Amino acid sequence: INASIYDEIQQEMKRAKVSQALFAKVAATKSQGWLCELLRWKEDPSPENRTLWENLSMIRRFLSLPQPERDAIY
Rank of each mutant, 00 (worst) to 15 (best):
Ile5Met: 07
Glu48Asn: 14
Ser19Glu: 06
Lys25His: 15
Asp71Val: 04
Leu35Glu: 00
Pro47Met: 14
Ile5Val: 07
Glu37Gly: 05
Leu52Gln: 15
Gly33Lys: 07
Ala3Trp: 13
Lys25Glu: 11
Ile59Gln: 02
Glu37Ser: 05
Leu38Pro: 00
Trp53Arg: 08
Asn49Ser: 11
Glu37Leu: 06
Cys36Ile: 13
Gln32Gly: 14
Lys14Met: 09
Leu63Thr: 00
Ala27Glu: 02
Phe62His: 06
Lys25Gly: 07
Leu35Asp: 03
Ala27Thr: 09
Thr29Pro: 07
Leu22Ser: 09
Thr29Ser: 12
Leu38Thr: 09
Gln10Arg: 09
Asp71Cys: 07
Arg60Gly: 06
Asn49Trp: 01
Lys14Ile: 13
Ile9Thr: 00
Glu8Ser: 04
Ile59Leu: 08
Asp71Ser: 06
Ala28Asn: 08
Leu52Asn: 08
Ala28Cys: 14
Ala16Ser: 11
Trp34Ile: 05
Ile5Asn: 05
Lys25Met: 04
Ser57Thr: 10
Ala21Leu: 05
Trp41His: 15
Gln67Arg: 10
Leu22Met: 11
Glu12Val: 03
Leu52Cys: 04
Pro45Ala: 05
Asn55Trp: 05
Gly33Phe: 15
Ser31Thr: 09
Leu39Glu: 05
Ser46Lys: 12
Lys14Gln: 14
Ala27Gly: 03
Ala24Asp: 04
Leu38Arg: 04
Ile9Gly: 01
Ser46His: 15
Leu65Arg: 12
Ala16Asp: 00
Ala3Lys: 09
Glu12Arg: 00
Asn55Tyr: 13
Lys25Gln: 11
Thr29Phe: 06
Ala27Ser: 11
Tyr6Arg: 01
Leu38Ser: 03
Ala3Arg: 15
Glu8Leu: 06
Ile59Ala: 01
Glu69Ser: 08
Glu48Ser: 10
Ser64Ile: 05
Met13Glu: 01
Ala72Lys: 10
Trp41Ile: 13
Glu48Val: 12
Asp71Trp: 05
Trp53Cys: 07
Ile73Arg: 12
Leu63Ser: 03
Arg40Val: 09
Leu65Pro: 03
Pro68Leu: 06
Asp44Val: 11
Met13Asp: 02
Gln20Arg: 08
Ser4Gln: 08
Glu48Ile: 13
Glu54Gln: 12
Arg15His: 08
Val26Ser: 09
Glu48Gln: 12
Met13Ser: 03
Ile5Asp: 06
Trp53Glu: 05
Leu63Asn: 03
Ile9Arg: 02
Pro66Lys: 09
Glu37Phe: 05
Leu38His: 05
Ser19Phe: 00
Pro66Met: 04
Tyr6Gly: 01
Arg70Gly: 00
Ser57Cys: 15
Thr51Met: 12
Arg70Ser: 04
Gly33Pro: 12
Lys14Asn: 08
Arg60Ile: 06
Trp53Pro: 05
Thr51Ser: 11
Asp44Ala: 14
Ala21Pro: 07
Phe23Trp: 01
Asn55Glu: 15
Ser31Val: 01
Arg61Thr: 12
Arg61Glu: 07
Ala72Glu: 15
Glu54Ile: 11
Ala72Arg: 15
Trp53Leu: 11
Trp41Val: 14
Pro47Phe: 08
Arg61Met: 04
Tyr6Lys: 03
Leu39Ala: 01
Asp71His: 09
Ser19Ala: 03
Asn55Gly: 12
Ala21Phe: 05
Ala16Tyr: 00
Val18Arg: 00
Val26Ala: 11
Glu69Arg: 11
Pro45Trp: 00
Arg40Met: 10
Gly33Ile: 13
Ala24Gly: 04
Glu48Lys: 15
Glu48Cys: 13
Ser64Asp: 08
Asn49Leu: 05
Arg40Trp: 08
Ala28Ser: 10
Leu56His: 04
Trp41Glu: 11
Arg61Pro: 04
Ser57Val: 13
Ala28Pro: 02
Glu37Trp: 11
Pro66Ile: 01
Pro66Asp: 15
Ile9Val: 07
Ile59Asn: 03
Lys25Tyr: 04
Gln32Arg: 15
Ile59Gly: 01
Leu65Thr: 09
Glu69Asn: 08
Lys25Cys: 07
Ser57His: 05
Lys42Tyr: 04
Gln10Ser: 11
Ser57Arg: 09
Gln67Gly: 10
Phe62Arg: 01
Gly33Cys: 07
Asn55Val: 06
Ala28Thr: 10
Ala21His: 15
Ala21Asp: 05
Lys42Pro: 03
Leu39Tyr: 00
Leu65Glu: 01
Ala24Phe: 00
Lys17His: 14
Arg40Glu: 13
Ser19Gly: 12
Lys42Trp: 00
Lys17Trp: 04
Lys42Phe: 02
Ser19Ile: 04
Leu38Val: 12
Arg15Phe: 02
Trp34Lys: 03
Glu69Met: 09
Asn55Met: 04
Leu38Ala: 08
Trp41Asp: 15
Cys36Met: 14
Leu52Arg: 04
Glu69Ala: 07
Lys25Val: 03
Asp7Asn: 11
Pro47Gln: 12
Ala21Thr: 08
Arg50Cys: 11
Glu54Arg: 11
Cys36Phe: 10
Ala16Phe: 09
Gln11Val: 13
Arg60Pro: 09
Ala24His: 01
Glu12Pro: 01
Pro47Arg: 11
Ala21Lys: 10
Ala24Ser: 10
Arg70Met: 03
Ile1Asn: 08
Ala72Pro: 04
Leu35Tyr: 06
Glu54Leu: 09
Arg15Ala: 03
Ile5Arg: 00
Glu48Met: 13
Ser4Trp: 06
Thr29Arg: 13
Ala27Tyr: 02
Lys25Ser: 04
Ser57Asn: 06
Ser64Glu: 09
Ser46Arg: 15
Gln32Pro: 11
Lys14Ser: 15
Arg50Ala: 14
Ala28Trp: 02
Gln11Ile: 10
Ser46Met: 11
Phe62Asp: 02
Ile59Phe: 05
Cys36Ser: 13
Arg50Trp: 12
Arg60Asn: 13
Asp7Pro: 07
Arg61Ala: 14
Arg15Cys: 02
Leu22Gln: 06
Leu35Ser: 03
Gln67Tyr: 04
Arg40Gln: 13
Leu65Asp: 03
Pro68Val: 11
Arg50Asp: 10
Trp34Ala: 06
Glu12Trp: 01
Ala28Ile: 07
Phe23Ala: 00
Thr51Lys: 11
Ser57Lys: 14
Lys14Thr: 06
Ser4Thr: 14
Ile9Ala: 04
Phe62Asn: 04
Gln11Met: 15
Asp7Cys: 15
Pro68His: 15
Gln32Lys: 10
Ala72Thr: 09
Ala28Gly: 06
Met13Val: 07
Asp7Glu: 14
Trp34Leu: 06
Ala24Tyr: 00
Arg50Met: 09
Gln11Lys: 08
Ala72Asp: 14
Asn49Tyr: 05
Gln32Ser: 10
Leu35Val: 03
Pro47Leu: 09
Gln10Thr: 06
Leu52Ala: 11
Ala21Asn: 09
Ser64Phe: 11
Val18Ser: 05
Ser4Arg: 08
Glu69Cys: 04
Ala72Asn: 15
Gln67Ala: 09
Arg50Val: 15
Leu63Met: 04
Gly33Ala: 13
Ala16Pro: 00
Gln20Trp: 06
Leu35Gly: 04
Leu22Arg: 10
Arg60Phe: 01
Gln11Arg: 10
Arg40Ala: 12
Leu65Phe: 07
Val26Arg: 02
Trp41Gly: 13
Arg60Leu: 01
Leu39His: 03
Thr51Phe: 05
Phe23Asp: 03
Gln10Glu: 15
Glu54Trp: 11
Ala24Pro: 03
Val26Pro: 00
Phe62Pro: 02
Ala16Lys: 08
Leu22Pro: 09
Glu54Met: 12
Thr29Tyr: 10
Lys25Arg: 13
Pro45Val: 13
Glu54Pro: 03
Leu39Gln: 09
Asn55Leu: 05
Ser19Val: 00
Lys30Gly: 08
Leu38Met: 08
Pro66Trp: 04
Gln20Lys: 13
Thr51Arg: 09
Phe62Trp: 06
Gly33Gln: 07
Glu69Asp: 07
Pro68Ile: 15
Arg61Lys: 15
Gln67Asp: 06
Glu8Gln: 15
Leu56Ala: 01
Trp53Ser: 04
Leu65Gly: 01
Gly33Leu: 11
Gln10Ile: 13
Asp44Ser: 15
Leu52Asp: 06
Trp41Arg: 12
Pro47Thr: 08
Glu69Thr: 14
Asp71Gly: 05
Val26Lys: 01
Arg40Leu: 09
Thr29Cys: 11
Ala21Ser: 09
Pro45Glu: 01
Tyr74Val: 04
Glu48Gly: 13
Leu56Trp: 00
Ser4Cys: 08
Trp34Asn: 04
Arg40Cys: 06
Thr51Ala: 10
Ala3Ser: 15
Tyr6Ser: 00
Ala24Trp: 02
Pro47Gly: 06
Lys14His: 10
Val18Glu: 01
Leu63Cys: 02
Thr29Met: 12
Gln67Cys: 08
